[in-house]
Simulated scan of single mutants.
Amino acid sequence: MDQVGLVRKVLNGEAEVEVRRISGCGENCKGCGGGCNVPSHVVILPNNINAEVGDFVEIQGETKNILKYTMIIYMIPFAFLIIGISLSMKILKNMSISSYEPLSFFIGLIFLAFGYLVVKFIDKKVGKKEENIIKMTRII
Rank of each mutant, 00 (worst) to 15 (best):
F80S: 09
N94E: 14
G5N: 01
S40I: 03
K129R: 13
R138P: 00
K129W: 00
I122Y: 06
K129A: 01
M136Q: 08
I91Q: 06
L117C: 04
V53D: 06
I83K: 08
N48D: 13
E58C: 03
C36I: 11
N28F: 07
N28Y: 09
K68D: 03
C25V: 04
K135I: 02
E18L: 15
L112F: 13
S104K: 10
L92R: 03
A79T: 13
V10F: 00
G54Q: 08
E62Y: 05
C29V: 00
I97L: 07
I91Y: 12
I122N: 00
I82D: 02
E131F: 05
G127A: 10
E14T: 14
D55Y: 13
V17G: 12
E130H: 08
N65A: 10
E27V: 03
I83D: 01
S40Y: 10
L87H: 10
S96F: 08
I66N: 04
R20H: 06
E62Q: 13
D55K: 11
S98F: 06
M136L: 10
I85M: 11
G13S: 04
S23N: 03
K124M: 07
S40W: 05
S104I: 04
C25W: 08
M71R: 10
K120C: 02
I107M: 00
E58M: 08
N132Y: 09
N50T: 01
H41L: 14
P77F: 01
I76V: 14
D55A: 07
P46M: 02
K128A: 15
K120T: 01
Q3I: 11
F114Y: 12
N48M: 10
V43I: 12
I66S: 03
E130W: 05
G127K: 11
M71A: 14
L92A: 03
I133R: 08
G5L: 09
V7P: 13
F121S: 09
D2F: 00
G127P: 02
L109E: 07
F111G: 11
L92Q: 04
D55E: 11
Y116M: 05
A79Y: 05
K93N: 13
I83T: 06
G34N: 15
K129E: 11
V118K: 04
L92C: 02
N132D: 11
S86K: 11
E62I: 02
P39L: 02
A79L: 14
I66C: 06
I49V: 15
S40E: 11
R8S: 02
E130Q: 15
